Simulated assay, not measured.
Amino acid sequence: MRFVIITIIMTACIFKGYAQSNDDDRQVVGVAEFSCKENSPYTGLVTEKVVEMLTNSKRFRVVDRTSRKKITQELELQKSEAFIDSDNLVEQDVAVAAEKMITGEIVKIPVYRMKNGDGTIRGYKASVAFQMKIVDVATGLSTEATSFEGKASDECLSPESAVTMAMMSLQDRMAEYFRINFPITAKLMKIVKEKNGVAEIILIKAGKKHGIKVGDKFNVEVLEILDGEILPTTLGIVTVTALKGEAYSECKVSKKEGKAIYENFNANKQIKCSLIIK
């Protein structure tokens, strides 16, 4: 009987989690623990900073695979009868399938002790260099490995803070790397304003939580399938004028391009809006 109860509870959790996951259509990106040829106790800090940078961009649902083993052990423990009446069960669907995986290899991560004249340690400095690539989970194909080397940190009170500072020097470059390698695409949801069959304002499904800002521009394309291949045709470029909620943006359309966008949208054609990388 208890086995039946456990099965019912787990099934309910799975469906609940499935429904919740569909509310957020951001791309799911996993981060695997970076490997390192050196036996350094600070390698985990590098992976943690990559996870933090991805999360702070608000563009992705980030899955930290570095702690996956511990999560699995906890979930297995909670399936036992000892937890059947607990109010603190973790939802059993926490394992979200990543579409892309970020992997990396740390080339060097030296940490230097800074000493006083009497030999006592007054602080630490560090630097870090690593290679990173993105793997498409479905195909197994990966990008070329890209090298990153941070500036040497200032003197810090601990080795951990010195490594963290070295990683922070790479923040802008890594943000640009993610922006280029994870291009934002959005659906055209509706024509907000039109005049005489010409679209003036459109609503797209990409907003604040995707990192979109007022002034960003999107290339609007209509997609056709010809002989099994996608043929994109550019309809025009639109400019974000207002963010609506967390997931949407209003975009201004020029008169020259508004007619084509209006006609293709109302003909139920498949339309894709791609963020233009400046």
Rank of each mutant, 00 (worst) to 15 (best):
134 I>R: 04
98 A>L: 00
217 K>F: 00
55 T>I: 09
13 C>G: 14
208 K>W: 03
92 Q>H: 06
245 G>Q: 06
241 T>W: 00
126 A>Y: 05
120 T>Q: 07
74 E>F: 01
208 K>D: 07
144 E>H: 11
173 R>Y: 07
61 R>Q: 10
67 S>D: 05
232 P>R: 08
79 K>S: 03
1 M>A: 12
237 I>S: 00
43 T>I: 12
7 T>P: 01
207 G>R: 06
32 A>L: 13
178 F>K: 12
160 E>A: 15
202 I>Y: 01
271 I>T: 06
132 M>C: 10
157 L>T: 14
63 V>W: 08
196 N>S: 13
132 M>W: 06
40 S>G: 05
17 G>L: 02
207 G>K: 05
208 K>C: 00
72 T>W: 08
184 I>L: 15
147 S>E: 09
181 N>A: 02
127 S>A: 11
225 I>D: 11
132 M>T: 09
273 C>R: 06
151 K>W: 00
118 D>Q: 07
39 N>S: 09
2 R>V: 10
43 T>M: 07
44 G>R: 05
58 K>I: 01
99 E>C: 06
66 T>C: 04
147 S>M: 11
219 N>M: 11
203 L>W: 01
258 G>F: 03
111 V>N: 05
45 L>S: 00
95 A>N: 13
100 K>S: 09
53 M>T: 10
93 D>F: 11
227 D>A: 10
52 E>R: 15
187 K>F: 07
126 A>W: 04
178 F>Q: 13
110 P>H: 05
192 V>G: 04
96 V>W: 09
52 E>S: 15
95 A>K: 14
232 P>I: 04
229 E>C: 04
258 G>V: 01
5 I>H: 10
42 Y>S: 06
1 M>H: 14
29 V>W: 01
244 K>G: 01
65 R>T: 09
93 D>W: 08
92 Q>Y: 06
172 D>I: 13
51 V>N: 10
40 S>F: 10
164 T>D: 12
169 S>P: 03
199 A>P: 01
228 G>V: 12
65 R>A: 09
92 Q>F: 10
27 Q>T: 15
9 I>D: 03
178 F>D: 08
75 L>H: 05
62 V>W: 04
71 I>T: 14
182 F>T: 01
100 K>N: 08
164 T>G: 11
58 K>G: 03
19 A>M: 13
276 I>K: 13
50 V>S: 06
196 N>Y: 06
200 E>Q: 15
252 K>F: 08
181 N>F: 08
278 K>M: 08
7 T>C: 08
268 N>F: 11
136 D>W: 01
250 E>L: 03
16 K>R: 13
27 Q>S: 14
112 Y>I: 12
112 Y>C: 01
270 Q>N: 12
251 C>M: 07
182 F>Y: 13
261 I>Q: 06
87 D>M: 07
159 P>H: 07
62 V>F: 03
160 E>M: 02
156 C>I: 00
75 L>D: 00
200 E>D: 11
98 A>Q: 05
124 Y>G: 02
82 A>L: 12
131 Q>H: 13
213 K>C: 05
193 K>Q: 14
54 L>H: 02
105 E>S: 10
88 N>M: 05
104 G>S: 03
